[in-house]
């Protein structure tokens, strides 16, 4: 029984620990197609998807290169929209 003791403690600890781990749905875990909006908040026709494809909101926020105002800078969509669109999208990065 002594041979199993440390292993059994590890199993119990792992099960206990995983039952206390809350799985929160975080927006940063999802990935989106991001498009740059114009001054009117509209995604222009022919706009190309930023970052070359789907990225997380966290990555887009860190790399959007937008500064100076609280307007939306990039809008993220779970599926690729038909352009142009003034829709608010699924997520946004801000210019502030």
């Amino acid at each position: 029984m002594k041979k199993y003791l440390l292993g059994i403690i590890a199993v119990i600890a792992a099960i206990t620990f995983s039952s206390f781990t809350k799985e929160e749905k975080k927006p940063a875990d999802d990935i989106y197609y991001f498009y740059m909006v114009d001054e009117n908040g509209v995604i222009p026709a022919g706009a190309s998807v930023q970052f070359g494809g789907q990225v997380t909101l966290g990555y887009a926020n860190a790399n959007d290169g937008c500064t100076g105002s609280t307007n939306h800078c990039l809008r993220g969509f779970i599926t690729q929209p038909s352009l142009p669109t003034a829709q608010s999208g699924d997520v946004q990065t801000l210019k502030n």
Binding site: L6, G7, A10, A14, F17, S18, T21, E23
Partner: peptide
Amino acid sequence: VEFVIALFIFLFVYTGINKLYT
């Protein structure tokens, strides 16, 4: 060896259960 075994049991049971759960 015992410590590494316990560590890996903990790690694999924890991540395995979490992966199955989600």
